[in-house]
Design a protein around this nucleic acid. Structure first.
Length: 600
RNA sequence: GCCGACGUAGCUCAGUUGGCAGAGCGGCUGAUUCGUAAUCAGCAGGUCAGGGGUUCAAGUCCCCUCGUCGGCUCCA
């Protein structure tokens, strides 16, 4: 992509002309917004009955929600795209236009534009800002490009359903997604990037690399981990548990079934029931599959008395939980119905919150470094002071907690976004959103301060004054669920996991049958160094064995033949660096073991 | 859950206007013993997602169910 500024000429609703750079978020926003209008114009010409809803720019393109009484077919997109190109080529001026409320209403009524009429009712202005290009007029705040000719390269990407105003009880509209650029090469690069994301799709790689499968018979949203996937998962489990033990967490095991009363006390039964499986009545109990682990950890905290000297108490678990997710949202390992969360609950004195927060953030940074995650942002979710009734606890507690978090973030020197009103009902939180291979940010880690559950479960510690006091809970998840983290890592690394995570680290490839014994000896020596190694002892040519090891993205392939067997060496091939030449077996073992412990 | 598309061998996919279910890879057997991305030959493998219907005849047309994919809504 060209680094030079790409100037685009725009026009504000008052008619003033300005220039923007397509390379900036504002520039792209205007550019794509105008492209969505161009698409609406094309659709209107091809489908005169079409009722337009909304057509905003999004992070990587634009969409327009349109009602033509049926969904769009792929062929429709071709026609629309072609018409858009014609309209762009005609280089129509895009001009602002002020219409009075009455004029706007008359215009929409003439077209039967019921969605626009509804939007109009929500806009207080009079007159109202419109833009016109050729025959086409759309209500819009703007700004827009000065003319359609600046739209050089357009691609309509996909269609889908969308509810009017995002409300599933209202009309279902047809949405068309697209993207556009000032230059054909940029479009080609963008399409290439989309293909690359598809190539990395963890569902595709998960099957090809034998990480997991889905079984129709086992049920929806219940992936089955294959041996190689289980090895990857076990590596993650051991890594995170060891790290947590080092950092002063105590690990526990609690079962995924619970008496529903536990979740009635916690409030989940009221707030979260739609995501829970129904109650199972057995003997005299009503059992549920838990959607979260917190109440179990609270039971463990409550089991004994706690002195202020013992706090913070950090209870951790790789906790199995089940959540009912609507069938349409299930996605490979990324969105499932049964999952294992890297969960912990820190019970502390209020003035320990800041220090605990800092420790958890530092832990997350370290874990990301080890996993190869480099791009992420912090989001502080606060209470909305204008909407206090949605949040539990009094002002002083909230103000104090938010101040502590801000203070901690300042000590850490971290830039962060704020999401006012995004807090959990029980307290403020910090989310860490990680950039995925597809370029989208998703929340993998979270740290939440909770004043409510200690209250509901009547938790206490004994203070210096020999009286009971209420502790604060911090809920924190570092590596998310093992399912989602695995999906994320597959896509991040395109299946080529760093050596320490690779399910199969080394594959030994004997050249002929007479080298199999030596190959097995090599494997045994490497296993003794805790390396995960297999021997490909099939009667196949070396080229084929290499090809298949490459396709499985095996980090190291060791070719062994007469020369190597005689000198107790291995011919090392790396999956991305190629043939590295021969090394003494011990030297290779040292090199690989060092690479594993450095987690490179 | 809603809208749409799709579902053929373990995997990737062909299969004409309805007329005998196919290929490559993989698997098995045999030959071959080979030096950095696919050795050759033979064989086996199917309730065409499941159920119902139309028809002389259904992988193909219609209906229902299940699942997958793309969206919406929601989210670790």
């Amino acid at each position: 992509m060209s680094m030079a500024a790409q100037e685009i000429r725009i026009r504000l609703s008052d008619g003033e002309a300005r220039t923007l750079d397509f390379g900036t978020p504002e520039g792209r926003e205007v550019y794509w917004h105008s492209t969505s209008h161009l698409m609406a114009q094309a659709v209107r010409e091809l489908f005169p009955e079409a009722k337009l809803a909304i057509g905003p720019p999004i992070e990587d393109g634009f969409y327009y929600d349109i009602d033509i009484g049926r969904p769009f077919a792929p062929e429709d997109l071709q026609w629309i795209e072609k018409r858009m190109k014609d309209l762009a080529r005609r280089n129509l001026p895009i001009e602002p236009l002020a219409l009075s409320r009455a004029e706007a209403r008359a215009l929409f009524e003439r077209h039967g534009d019921k969605y626009k009429l509804e939007l109009l009712d929500g806009i207080p202005d009079d007159p109202i800002s419109f833009y016109r290009q050729g025959e086409f007029v759309d209500m819009c705040r703007g700004p827009h490009l000065g003319n359609t000719g600046q739209i050089k390269a357009v691609k309509l990407l996909s269609t889908g359903g969308a509810y009017w105003r995002g409300d599933e009880n209202r009309e279902q509209l047809a949405r068309i997604y697209g993207v556009s650029f000032p230059d054909e090469q940029q479009l080609a690069d963008h399409i290439h990037m989309l293909e690359e994301a598809k190539r990395r799709d963890h569902r595709k790689l998960g099957r090809e690399l034998e990480i997991f499968i889905q079984s129709e018979d086992a049920g929806q949203g219940i992936p089955l981990w294959l041996p190689r996937g289980a090895t990857l998962r076990r590596t993650l489990e051991r890594y995170i548990v060891d790290l947590e033990l080092q950092l002063g967490y105590e690990h526990v095991y609690t079962p995924p079934l619970a008496n529903v009363d536990l979740y009635k006390i916690s409030g989940h039964w009221d707030h979260y029931r739609d995501n829970m499986y129904p109650v199972m009545k057995i003997d005299n109990e009503e059992l549920v599959l838990r959607p979260m682990n917190c109440p179990h950890h609270i039971m463990i905290y409550k089991h004994g008395q706690h002195s202020y000297r013992d706090l913070p108490v950090r209870i951790a678990e790789l906790g199995l939980m089940h959540r009912y997710e609507r069938s349409g949202v299930l996605t490979g390992l990324a969105r499932v119905r049964g999952m294992v969360l890297n969960d912990a609950h820190i019970f502390c004195i209020p003035d320990q919150i800041k220090a605990e927060f800092i420790t958890v953030v530092e832990m997350i940074q370290r874990v990301y470094r080890d996993l190869g995650i480099t791009e992420y942002i912090y989001t502080l979710s606060r209470r909305d002071p204008a909407n206090k009734e949605k949040f539990a606890g009094d002002d002083a507690i909230w103000e104090n907690a938010e101040a502590l978090i801000v203070d901690a973030l300042r000590d850490l020197g971290l830039a962060y976004r704020e999401d006012v009103g995004g807090a959990a009902f029980y307290g403020p939180k910090l989310d860490i959103d990680v950039k995925s291979a597809a370029g989208k940010y998703e929340t993998l880690s979270t740290i939440q301060v909770d004043f409510l559950l200690p209250e509901r479960f009547d938790l206490a510690y004994i203070g210096e004054d020999n009286k009971p006091h209420r502790p604060v809970m911090i809920h924190r998840g570092v590596i998310s669920t093992l399912e989602r983290m695995t999906a994320f890592l597959i896509e991040l690394h395109a299946g080529a996991f760093p050596l320490w995570l690779a399910p199969e680290q080394v594959r030994v490839l004997p050249i002929a049958d007479r080298h199999v014994d030596y190959a097995r000896a090599v494997a045994a020596a490497l296993k003794a160094r805790d390396l995960r190694v297999h021997v490909d002892d099939r009667n196949e040519k070396i080229g084929k064995k290499i090809r298949e090891a490459q396709l499985m993205k095996t980090p190291y392939m060791l070719v062994v033949g007469d020369k190597e067997a005689e000198t107790r060496s291995v011919a090392v091939r790396h999956r991305s660096d190629g043939d590295l030449g021969a090394l003494p077996l011990d030297a290779f073992a040292d090199r690989a073991a060092a690479e594993v412990s450095a987690r490179r």
